[in-house]
Nucleic acid binder design. Structure first.
Lengths: 265, 265
DNA sequence: CCCTTTGTTCCAAATAATGAAACTTAATTT
DNA sequence: AAATTAAGTTTCATTATTTGGAACAAAGGG
């Protein structure tokens, strides 16, 4: 994994290092990080020290390993509450899951990737944190395509280059061309399918959550398996999904921007 | 709110700015931040730009406000999974909550403060993320005192200075002296009470989670209200709590340090 | 004991951060 | 509509920090 991120001076580089530790998914030693890092020994070393001082990383002297620090958990709690749609959308998502009797995902766009910020499973309404924060590919998930179809030109272009296309199943759209065509279709209908593109026997129906100025706020989806339902069956939920998305968008806007009504004329 | 954090060059300062946004708890405008900031206009401005570029903040052009970015949610998910005790302790905490039929908290120390990383409520096993990441005072909570009682001299001293003592109730321990005395007692018995010190009618029993080298990994507690139980009743759970803490510690150690068994001799 | 690996510190050169001030919008008042 | 104020953004010479090769220290073998 090469260092993707160039710009933004010292801070950007230090955050690169932070991401690198995060991407390992376990406590790591200095040498391991050095191997994969684009930065020289002393430089990386200082970054890790700084981040540790700052509580963004924690260092275990016994095993000489770095892990992500608790400060992140604190920050993230605030981030999830103030910046994600999840707390606002929660009641609507719950209702939707109950109504469709299937798993509902709430996602937002993060770079070219899909970031899941909430999940509701009607049969097992538990265990939220373990799903929030997961990331998925943008080009082969229902929510990903639903969002990409409605972002502005510039964002889309950037997002498309950030995809690393991989043929997960025989249905996966593996090129920007195929994807663009699909997105055109989605823009027309307002709904997006995952036709076993990411994982066999998993299908889903997704719709974007759009602000009143048609800015993409996020997306919601209903997921199910081909053993329990079909695309045609799922499609029947489109109106409910759209209504739910509308509700979330309205609530989000009135919540996040209670003043400045002028512009909305 | 003055800037607390000095050291650590540019990165530290930028993270200060990040924390500042987090502490506001809502989207904020540049001017608001500038007012409270220790940094000059242009400097703060560049920090915000950098953090936004990096996805740690997000900027809404419409309302000209900064909020925490989605990248944090992603990082935090990784942090919670790899760095907190929560995923390891989850099954034990669940069992405990069922057994004692009361709310169980799992906490870790972050600076002088208590960071809650998991919570189980037997009657309503749901809604996790909203609790993880919350912080509380160290000096007047069961888990806080349980952990402080067993940390090393240096950490304790630093933690004590970081408390801002406030008499929440008539039982709150409001000085380092009172607290130290209490900690001595806790060290002797291995259990810690919250005798309505943080909130009236809320009591709790907590025990520390200690590694085999007696390093403080975290703490667990059983919380209840005085209307439903008493301190004496709670005290009866001490053995179960201790056993649970032991289990968590053992699992944590074997999980996080699968190799290097030599030192444990 | 020597050699290797891994982690830490130094320091002069290179680079990036700094912040006062100038500038540009945008909003409000006259 | 012009003038005034406020809010946000850019500039640039100065200053301070980062940089990274290389030397150093410590731990682990052979």
């Amino acid at each position: 994994m090469a260092q993707a991120n160039a710009g933004d001076g010292t801070v950007g580089k230090a955050l690169d290092a932070l991401d690198q530790v995060a991407s390992m998914g376990r406590p790591v030693r200095f040498a391991e990080l050095l191997e994969e890092s684009a930065y020289p020994k002393a430089t990386l070393y200082r970054f890790l020290q700084t981040l540790t001082n700052q509580g963004m990383l924690s260092y275990d002297a016994r095993s000489q390993t770095y892990s992500l620090g608790v400060r992140l958990v604190r920050l993230a709690h605030a981030a999830w509450r103030q910046s994600s749609l999840a707390p606002i959308a929660r009641p609507y998502v719950e209702d939707l899951a109950r109504e469709v009797q299937a798993t509902v995902h709430l996602a937002q766009l993060d770079g070219g990737q899909v970031l899941y910020v909430d999940k509701q499973n009607p049969s097992n309404p538990i265990n939220m944190y373990s799903e929030s924060g997961k990331v998925g590919p943008g080009y082969c998930t229902g929510v990903g395509k639903a969002m990409l179809a409605f972002v502005d030109e510039a964002t889309l272009e950037r997002a498309l280059t950030q995809q690393t296309y991989h043929r997960h199943t025989e249905n996966t759209l593996c090129s920007p061309q195929e994807l663009m065509e699909e997105l055109r279709e989605i823009r027309k209908t307002g709904i997006s399918f995952d036709r076993e593109e990411h994982e066999m026997s998993i299908i889903c129906l997704a719709v974007p959550i759009l602000s009143s100025q048609d800015r993409v706020l996020g997306a919601i989806s209903v997921t199910n398996s081909t053993h329990r339902t079909s695309l045609d069956e799922l499609k029947k939920f489109a109106p409910i999904l759209k209504a739910c998305a509308k509700n979330i968008a309205d609530t989000a806007e009135s919540w996040r921007f209670p003043e400045h009504d002028k512009l909305a004329k």
